[in-house]
Amino acid sequence: MSTSYKELTINGLWKNNPGLVQLLGLCPLMGTSNSTVNALGLGLATIFVLACSNAAVSLIRNAVTPAIRLPAFVMIIAALTTCIELLMQAYTYQLYLILGVFIPLITTNCVILGRAEAFAAKNKFVSSTYDGFVMGLGFALVLVIIGMVRELLGTGTLFTNMQLLFGSMAANWQWTVFPNYEGFLLAVLPPGAFLVLGLMIALKNQIDSYILARTPVNMPAAADRRVRVTD
Rank of each mutant, 00 (worst) to 15 (best):
residue 150 R to K: 14
residue 31 G to Q: 11
residue 141 L to K: 10
residue 200 M to W: 04
residue 174 Q to A: 15
residue 77 I to L: 03
residue 159 F to K: 00
residue 156 G to H: 11
residue 203 L to K: 00
residue 222 A to Q: 13
residue 228 R to Q: 05
residue 69 R to F: 14
residue 161 N to I: 00
residue 110 C to N: 08
residue 178 F to T: 07
residue 114 G to Y: 12
residue 181 Y to C: 08
residue 101 V to A: 14
residue 146 I to R: 02
residue 112 I to R: 03
residue 221 A to C: 11
residue 192 G to A: 12
residue 168 S to H: 10
residue 4 S to N: 14
residue 142 V to H: 12
residue 70 L to S: 03
residue 170 A to D: 04
residue 217 V to Q: 09
residue 108 T to H: 03
residue 36 T to V: 12
residue 37 V to S: 12
residue 119 F to L: 13
residue 117 E to C: 10
residue 73 F to K: 05
residue 137 L to V: 12
residue 28 P to C: 10
residue 165 L to W: 04
residue 178 F to E: 10
residue 82 T to Y: 03
residue 102 F to S: 01
residue 135 M to W: 04
residue 127 S to L: 15
residue 158 L to W: 12
residue 68 I to E: 02
residue 133 F to P: 12
residue 213 A to Y: 05
residue 41 G to L: 00
residue 224 D to N: 12
residue 2 S to K: 14
residue 91 Y to T: 03
residue 129 T to Y: 09
residue 56 A to G: 07
residue 143 L to V: 07
residue 109 N to C: 04
residue 55 A to C: 06
residue 58 S to F: 05
residue 113 L to F: 13
residue 104 P to I: 10
residue 36 T to E: 06
residue 94 Q to T: 11
residue 180 N to M: 04
residue 51 A to S: 14
residue 168 S to F: 04
residue 215 T to F: 05
residue 193 A to D: 02
residue 52 C to V: 03
residue 95 L to E: 01
residue 13 L to I: 10
residue 144 V to G: 00
residue 92 T to A: 07
residue 26 L to S: 08
residue 86 L to N: 02
residue 213 A to Q: 10
residue 104 P to Y: 08
residue 141 L to C: 10
residue 130 Y to F: 15
residue 84 I to M: 04
residue 225 R to A: 07
residue 149 V to K: 10
residue 42 L to C: 00
residue 180 N to R: 08
residue 176 T to N: 15
residue 57 V to S: 01
residue 70 L to T: 08
residue 112 I to A: 03
residue 137 L to D: 09
residue 157 T to Q: 15
residue 124 K to R: 15
residue 65 T to C: 04
residue 86 L to M: 09
residue 142 V to M: 11
